[in-house]
Amino acid sequence: MRVALMVTCVNDAMFPGTGAAVVRLLRRLGVEVDFPEAQTCCGQPMVNTGYLDEAVPAVRTYVDAFAGYDAIVTPSGSCAGSARHQHGLVARRAGENGSDPGLAEAVAAAPPTYELTEFLVDVLGVTDVGAYFPHAVTYHPTCHSLRMLGVGDRPRRLLEAVRGLRLVELPNADQCCGFGGTFALKNSDTSVAMGSDKVRHVRGTGAEVLVAGDNSCLMHIGGMLTRQRSGVRVMHLAEILAATEDEPAAPAPGAAR
């Protein structure tokens, strides 16, 4: 199986350790994964803001960069959701207005895009990935992974199989953290209020680490945790799953400590 990593813009720019963790994890599980250097943005920021025409070049670059692979894996429910649900919308519009008549066919022929936990559980058929992380952890299910992709309990099953990890229940876990991409910029007061509620619940668990499958949400929540000097650090799920006794996980740059 030829597998490609779609690292995402946020991870490439701010959290490169997450992409590296995905590669270490998959290679440990016997999967050879490539990193196509032609990849750029999946186009989600433009689509979410209503600029479908402006998203056409990003979607075209996506399908061209990952052509020929059997699967695309990304450590982001948000970007996986964009590829699976938004690229078709952009492609149909591009066909209707003539900006890229062949895009719909290219999108239809593109390899499937999987969020990391979907790939591990559904494609590889594993929940115990050989990880070791001796800390109390609470899990935040991000909106796109929960609602758009329906990842369900896959992340929890993976975390429960990590040796040494104690998984603590997060109250009101299914409530949005308030980031929402451009929503946080357009509606900052509401975003901060939602984030404050999430942080209060996180701190109430007594967990040492907050984990999620999207660094964008962790960036939002982690910033508040840091400003409150909570002592709770945030980590992407991939970094915990990649951790072993020989290669312990380290907090991402800018994570709450």
Rank of each mutant, 00 (worst) to 15 (best):
A4S: 14
V7W: 01
N11G: 06
P16W: 07
G17S: 10
A20Y: 03
A21F: 08
A21Q: 07
V22Q: 06
V23M: 13
R27Q: 14
L29Q: 06
G30P: 06
E37L: 14
Q39K: 10
Q39C: 09
T40D: 03
N48P: 05
G50T: 04
G50A: 09
E54Y: 11
V56W: 01
A58F: 13
V59N: 11
R60T: 14
Y62L: 15
V63Q: 05
F66G: 06
V73L: 08
A80F: 00
G81M: 07
R84F: 00
G88P: 01
A91F: 04
R92Q: 11
R93L: 15
R93W: 04
L103Y: 07
A104N: 10
A104G: 11
A106W: 11
P112I: 12
P112V: 12
L120N: 08
D122S: 11
A131L: 13
F133E: 06
F133G: 02
A136I: 01
A136L: 09
Y139H: 11
H140C: 04
H144Y: 01
M148R: 01
G150M: 02
V151N: 08
V151L: 05
D153W: 01
D153F: 01
P155A: 07
P155T: 06
L159I: 08
E160Q: 14
L165D: 04
E169C: 04
L170A: 02
N172A: 13
Q175D: 13
C176Q: 11
C176L: 13
C177E: 03
F179S: 08
G180E: 09
G180P: 06
F183D: 09
A184M: 07
A184W: 06
S188D: 14
V192D: 03
S196R: 15
S196G: 12
V199K: 02
V199L: 10
R200Q: 09
H201M: 11
G204I: 11
G206T: 08
A207Q: 11
A207P: 08
D214M: 09
D214I: 10
C217V: 06
T226I: 05
R227M: 12
Q228P: 01
R233C: 06
E239W: 08
E239Q: 15
L241G: 07
A243F: 05
P248Y: 13
A249M: 11
A249S: 13
P251A: 03
A252L: 15
P253N: 10
